[in-house]
Computed example of a mutant assay.
Amino acid sequence: MTRISSLLTATAIGVVLLSGAALADTSGKKIALSNNYAGNSWRQAMLKSWDTVTKKAVADGVVAAADPFTTGENQATEQAAQIQNLILQGYDAIVINAASPTALNGAVKEACDAGIIVVSFDGVVNEPCAWRIAVDFKQMGAVQLDYLAEKIPAGGNLLEIRGLAGVFVDDEIHAGIEQGVAKHTQFKIAGSVHGDWTQEVAQKAVAGILPSLPEIAAVVTQGGDGYGAAEAFKAAGRPTPLIIMGNRQDELQWWKEQKDANGYETMSVSIAPGVSTLAFWVAQQILDGKEVPKDLVVPFLRIDQDTLEANLATTEKGGVANVEYSLEDAQKVIAGK
């Protein structure tokens, strides 16, 4: 090898090391987002985070494309057809927020068999060939009862507001709430409605069930429903119970107003919408040849009485308290740190 070629080789290696380039070149790879639903503020924030992070990744030459696709309704059949379309369009990886943990498995297996990387998040799939990124949603439900046991030790009747029926997230949070009620037996679920993670739907559903309910000590929720519940209680002329919030800006603003007016106390918990950006980087790392565990768990984002103002100040109007992930963050999650 000549001195010049040796220098060129050394320089090339140095560039690779300094740039943090991974095992394989992903600059020509295309990643798609298959999203089953966009009808609430959390989903809008999730899509916005995806757009912010992936546009920069494309501009920086990390990947060739990172295109988002959202189905019109939360229908597994429609999303399965969408995934089959993405296979035909030649994407190298598909990131999925799934309508069902099982109903998409056929389409997901088709993608895997075609050599496409599939990473599911939030609404995950249980097809073994796919990767999954989720918070411990069951714990997200159970922690609400632990909090209520501290704040209302005497217990009481609960109203449960669930999310979208048939979705993995709804089932898991509900199971956690049931687990919490079994642990803290002074509480009883007196009524349950589906709020679809949307304030307007939650408000209407709560208003419909309130006339049939006894006195409610607290409302356990899944996110996107706390403010709607508060408005329903107000309209019915009933005392406002302790309502668990879900990190939406309108919920946090309402909570602050009540806190300032009368010392109202609660907590707020949800998965950060920016988990979509973690899923993007995980897909990129798998395409890059990294060994990645099939199941990754990220912490949920909790807001308490003493952190309310700080979180509200950084949450845009109509948005959701959020965390967006970098490549370095993803590498830490992959490494289990």
Rank of each mutant, 00 (worst) to 15 (best):
Leu88Gly: 15
Leu88Ser: 15
Leu88His: 08
Gln89Asn: 15
Gly90Cys: 04
Gly90Phe: 07
Tyr91Ser: 03
Ala93Lys: 11
Ala93Asp: 12
Ile96Thr: 00
Ala98Gly: 09
Ala99Pro: 07
Ser100Gly: 06
Ala103Met: 03
Asn105Val: 06
Asn105Trp: 02
Ala107Leu: 07
Cys112Gln: 09
Asp113Ile: 11
Asp113Thr: 12
Ala114Met: 03
Gly115Glu: 04
Gly115Leu: 07
Gly115Tyr: 07
Ile116Trp: 05
Ile116Arg: 10
Ile117Asn: 05
Val118Ile: 11
Val118Lys: 04
Val119Asn: 02
Ser120Ile: 01
Ser120Phe: 00
Asp122Asn: 14
Asp122Gln: 11
Gly123Ser: 13
Val124Thr: 15
Val125Lys: 01
Asn126Phe: 14
Asn126Ser: 15
Pro128Met: 06
Trp131Cys: 00
Trp131Ala: 06
Ile133Met: 03
Ile133Lys: 01
Val135Asn: 15
Phe137Asp: 15
Phe137Trp: 08
Phe137Gly: 13
Phe137Asn: 15
Lys138Leu: 12
Lys138Phe: 07
Lys138Pro: 05
Gln139Lys: 14
Gln139Cys: 01
Gly141His: 08
Gly141Asp: 02
Ala142Phe: 14
Val143Thr: 14
Gln144Asn: 13
Tyr147Met: 09
Leu148Gly: 10
Leu148Glu: 08
Ala149Asn: 15
Ala149Val: 03
Ile152His: 14
Pro153Thr: 04
Ala154Glu: 14
Ala154Val: 12
Ala154Leu: 08
Ala154Gly: 11
Gly156Ile: 13
Asn157Thr: 13
Leu158Phe: 09
Glu160Asp: 08
Glu160Ser: 12
Ile161Arg: 09
Ile161Gln: 10
Arg162Glu: 09
Arg162Met: 13
Arg162Gly: 15
Arg162Phe: 04
Gly163Leu: 05
Gly163Met: 07
Leu164Ala: 11
Ala165Glu: 12
Phe168Met: 10
Val169Phe: 10
Asp170Ala: 02
Asp170Gln: 10
Asp171Trp: 02
Asp171Cys: 00
Glu172Thr: 04
Ile173Gly: 00
Ala175Gly: 07
Gly176Ala: 08
Gly176Ile: 06
Gly176Arg: 03
Gly176Glu: 05
